[in-house]
Structure formats: structure tokens, C-alpha cells
Design a protein around this nucleic acid. Structure first.
Lengths: 230, 230
DNA sequence: CATTGTGAAGCGTTTCACAGCC
DNA sequence: GGCTGTGAAACGCTTCACAATG
């Protein structure tokens, strides 16, 4: 029944780059630039021009041959494709260091993801103010999700409580989760999960550093210090 | 001159999963499990068994057919491959909210990435104590990197200062950077950069939520609230 | 005989190269 | 002439399917 517009499927790899293009286009827009080539956008985005053109072609043919892309129009089209033409209120589970930092970070709501709620299991935290947001009981999750129409949940709990937090978010009706806990969440397949994992990132860098040393002449680098078994 | 061991090239996709396997193996080890099949590891890691086996095969043939993998031995092999048999001291640039949170987070050093230094451009912050770490001037960067043999730098500055931070890190001798600022860093090709970008993650989730709505019958989800042009 | 290790097929992403168009 | 849009080739990653084997 729905009109058939917007039925293109955009590759995941492209979706993950659109936010980067969008940010760059915003900056260029603020600088007064109103037209940009794939070459320039590629340079600013740290990718190559063919990729930029392919990526943008999935949105439609919004460029002008011989000229480039109109910045403001392209911004609008990317926003539309990413669903950024309206706000997506988020709920944060876990009012520890991270949850507090996230709540306090204003540029969050400003960018279309207002904090609709911050909840915690710990009764002693409930009621306290954190970055202008009052901590509420985790039992209020369903009510917050329903009344504020939240579809994105953020897991900012310790590892041990992360699965429980995810279960509660899903039960409350959330359909996307951003997980900061270093653990694999088990959720129904219809739920979209993304992970931010500091330790994984550092270990990937460690791999490359290690490789650098093993590969050629020694550079200025760390020396063995401790061998831990777990 | 170097012995030719360790010359396999491991696919990036595999490298990014090894830390996940490692964490799971550690947990299983602590639970007293000493042998694990690719099926079980896949289940815990949220991937499929063929992928686990392929991934592990890049390390060598460390499994036993008909049995599985010895947990402790596999832990050791992954650690070795990722370069986690010794510490990698890191230096953090930017003593704002994020830099403070990172410095304070103990599980950081405990996991093989001790904070060798926390620096900031802001003279008024220099000398203050943050999470047990004293903030030092950014001018001391070269000295910290040299004396503590730091090869990994963390950019935790505001967006506007991120490129400068990266330039200083590279000049000081750092060869890997973990960037928390929402901007594309320009660095020499030999430098390994990884990015943690909250806004990008949320926008990817937004895309999927938007798609959910556009694709079928309306579910419980956010309604249009504001259309911003930049 | 359960489970690994791995060629080979399948699939998604990137890059090339150039036709199409302003 | 310059830049976009895009088939087609190249590449890398995932999955299959089964031979190898403790």
C-alpha cells in the first residue's frame, strides 16, 4: 500500500559513509561553499572519488555533469535517506560514568537524538540529576519508550548488566540498540545492534603495531613488559 | 634478518573479530571451560561456525579434529597474534570530559594499555589531577612518547583541535591513533588510524529505523518533529 | 564419528574506465 | 572540457561442503 518511493536498497558500506559525507557537506555549507565535486568531497572524506560517486548514485542522480553537486540539496537528500529529517529520541540505560557523560553531552540532542530518558537499576541513583537529566528507575523504561516514542536505546551499563539492559529495551519496544558494553548482546534478529568497543579498537591497533615490529627493522616502540594468561 | 615466522597476512575482517573471540575465550577460561568447539564459540560470538574456523585457521592449525580448541592455548595464540603479550602504553590528548573519563577508567591499563600520559593545550588544566593522572602540557608530548615508548595516541579533543592533536602525535613519533573526534584526520599513510564516532553510529541506526517505517506498516516509532537544513 | 581445516563457490564492495551530459 | 553516473572487472570476505583426522 505504501508508495513505492524509497525502495532502493543502499549497501551497508555506503550507509556507513553517508554520515561522514553529511558532516563534511555541513561544514562546507557553513563556509559558504555551495557546489562541490566528487573529487573534493573524496579528498575531505579520505576516500576516493569513484567511491563517492557510487555512494551518491544510490540516492539518485543529484549531481550535475561537468559541475558537481549542489551542497544544500545533497545535504537534504542524505538527511532524508538517513531519516534525519526528524528527531530520534534515545533512552540511555546505565547512569554510571559513561551514561552521565552521554547525557551531559549536549551536541547529542542538537544533532537530532535528544535524550528522552536516563535510567538505572540502582535505586540510590534514581532521582539524582545528571547533566540536566533526572535519573529514573529502569522499571519506567516501557513507559518512557511508549510515551516519548523512543526507538533507539543505548546500553551504557557494566558488562554484567548489559544483556539484561538489552532485554528490557527490547521488551519495552526499542528496535535499535547502540551497545557500549564489551559483550555480544543476544537479541531478536529484527533488532538492529551497533557496538562501540574501545578495547577492540585498541587491540586492532595493537595488531598493526605488533606487525610493524615483526615485519621490518625495529622502530621506536614498546618493549615486552608482562605476559598475562587470561 | 628477522626470522620468517609470523608472515601470514590476516584479513582485516578477521583481525577485527579476534578481540571478540579473545574476550569470550577469557570468560570461558574463567568459568573453567578448557575446550571449546567452533560451534560454541560462534554461538557466543554471534557469528557462524565456518567464519570462526576460517578466522582461527589464519593463526595456524591450533584445533583438534573431533574435539575442538584448547581454550588456554587459543587465548595465548590470539594474544600473540594481536601483540598483546606485552603492554602498549597510550597517550591521551585532551583532558576534557572524554579524556578524563578515559584516564579514570582503570580497566584500560589492566587490559594492557596503561595511560602513559594525559596532555592538554589548556595551561589552566595542566598540573591538575584527573583520575589519578596528572595533566601535562601538550609540549611535553615528544618527551612522553620517547621516554615511555608510546606508539598509540588517543585524540580526545574537540573537533576543532583534533587535526592539530594528530599532527603533534605523529611528530612526536606515535604510529597509531584512535580518534574520538568527529572529523577525518589527515595523516601520513604509514599511520594507522581508527575512529570511534557516536554520531555516525546513531545515524546508521536512524537509517535502519527510517527504513523500517518506510518499508511496511507503521510500528511504534518516532514522528516528524523538526526539519533542519544543516 | 564429531569436529577441524580448507578449496571453491557465492556475494558484496571497490575500483576502473568511459559513455553520457551540462 | 570537465565532471557525473554506471556497467564491468577486480578484489576481498563469507559461506558451503566435504575431505582429513584425532
Amino acid at each position: 500500500m505504501a508508495p513505492d518511493r524509497n525502495r532502493r536498497r543502499i549497501p551497508d558500506a555506503t550507509v556507513s559513509r553517508l554520515p561522514v559525507y553529511l558532516r563534511i557537506l555541513g561544514e562546507q555549507h557553513d563556509l559558504g561553499v555551495d557546489s562541490i565535486s566528487s573529487d573534493r568531497l573524496a579528498e575531505l572524506g579520505g576516500v576516493n572519488a569513484a567511491k563517492v560517486r557510487k555512494d551518491l548514485s544510490y540516492l539518485g542522480s543529484y549531481g550535475t555533469r561537468g559541475v558537481g553537486y549542489e551542497v544544500a540539496y545533497l545535504i537534504f537528500q542524505i538527511q532524508r535517506e538517513l531519516g534525519l529529517t526528524h528527531d530520534w529520541p534515545v533512552v540511555i540505560v546505565g547512569a554510571g560514568n559513561l551514561g552521565q557523560a552521554l547525557s551531559g553531552y549536549g551536541g547529542f540532542g542538537a544533532r537530532g537524538f535528544p535524550v528522552a530518558g536516563l535510567v538505572d537499576v540502582d535505586a540510590s541513583k534514581v532521582g539524582t540529576l545528571v547533566g540536566g537529566v533526572r535519573v529514573r528507575s529502569i522499571d519506567e523504561l516501557p513507559q518512557i519508550v511508549q510515551s516519548k516514542r523512543v526507538s533507539i536505546g543505548i546500553v551504557a551499563t557494566p558488562t554484567a548488566s548489559a544483556q539484561d539492559a538489552a532485554d528490557r529495551l527490547v521488551a519495552a519496544g526499542v528496535t535499535s540498540i547502540l551497545n557500549f558494553a564489551p559483550t555480544v548482546l543476544s537479541v531478536p534478529p529484527s533488532i538492529e545492534v551497533r557496538k562501540v568497543d574501545l578495547a577492540v579498537e585498541l587491540q586492532i591497533l595493537s595488531y598493526h603495531e605488533q606487525r610493524r615490529i615483526a615485519g621490518g627493522a625495529a622502530t621506536t616502540a614498546a618493549r615486552p613488559r608482562a605476559v598475562s594468561a587470561s
